[in-house]
């Protein structure tokens, strides 16, 4: 895919001093981080840490009060239309139009993302097959179970092959088999060069699929580091230290 702004050296996503107030209090404060192509970043934090607000701003659904978001080197706040091609977003509870079928949802998202005709048909068929939505294709979204809704939301986010995938609690309501399939899917996307940012409450989710983890607390970034699948205990300790004390404790001497 040709990206709208071809600054190949630029990270896919760069947040710089991003801040946003919600309900009269700072939800995200001076958040800076970057995400290269092909990397999966896990966003961890307790409820109210600012994860969903951050992802809403990255997805283009919410404007930050201050700071900048650069997508593939371009100023996203100046060019919000970049979201159309570059970003696929699955919000926390996949929002759907209850009166439309699964297939109609994919068509609507395709049209909104600029897909038409044969390209839309091809993309729809591929994503329906990949997420095994064939039996649900003609079913109304209003009668889907929570897990099925989540899968449809994921299909809508992936339909146009975004360069940046933003997933907010994607494993919500999925059964263990579907969670495993989701992990495989996320790794596939990363292997294909897609930058993935996902928020989750599940530490196991982070160690299973993420290359990097960022921990938010009270709207600020408290930890940003690489994840190794065998250091679940270390991640758990860091997370709880931040959740309890607001910051990771210095490493103890052996």
């Amino acid at each position: 895919m040709t990206l709208p702004t071809d600054v190949s050296a630029a990270p896919m996503l760069r947040l710089d001093q991003l801040s946003r107030r919600r309900a009269g209090r700072p939800a995200v404060q001076s958040l800076s981080l970057s995400l290269p192509r092909g990397q999966v970043l896990g966003l961890l934090g307790v409820n109210g840490a600012g994860k969903s607000t951050t992802l809403s701003m990255v997805a283009g659904a919410l404007r930050p009060d201050s700071g900048s978001i650069r997508l593939n080197g371009a100023d996203f706040l100046e060019q919000p239309e970049l979201a159309r091609q570059l970003i696929g977003w699955l919000p926390e509870r996949a929002p759907l139009w209850p009166e439309l079928t699964v297939s109609e949802h994919l068509d609507a998202h395709g049209h909104l993302r600029g897909l038409r005709g044969a390209a839309l048909k091809q993309a729809r068929t591929a994503i329906i097959e990949r997420l095994e939505l064939q039996p649900l294709a003609r079913r109304l979204a209003g009668v889907l179970s929570q897990g099925q809704r989540q899968r449809l939301g994921l299909a809508c986010a992936l339909l146009h092959r975004p360069a940046l995938l933003v997933l907010d609690e994607p494993a919500n309501a999925l059964d263990p088999v579907q969670v495993a399939a989701l992990r495989t899917l996320i790794r596939e996307q990363a292997a294909a060069g897609t930058a993935v940012i996902l928020s989750t409450h599940l530490l196991a989710e982070v160690t299973a699929v993420c290359d990097r983890v960022a921990i938010l607390h009270d709207g600020t970034l408290r930890h940003d580091g690489h994840v190794h699948s065998d250091d679940h205990a270390a991640l758990e300790r860091t997370f709880f230290e931040i959740a309890m004390n607001g910051q990771p404790q210095p490493a103890r001497a052996a």
Partner: peptide, 14 residues
């Protein structure tokens, strides 16, 4: 009410 308005914003639709 459906929560679908942010989806339109996130698709870059003014």
């Amino acid at each position: 009410r459906n929560g679908t308005l942010p989806l339109l914003f996130a698709a870059g639709v003014p």
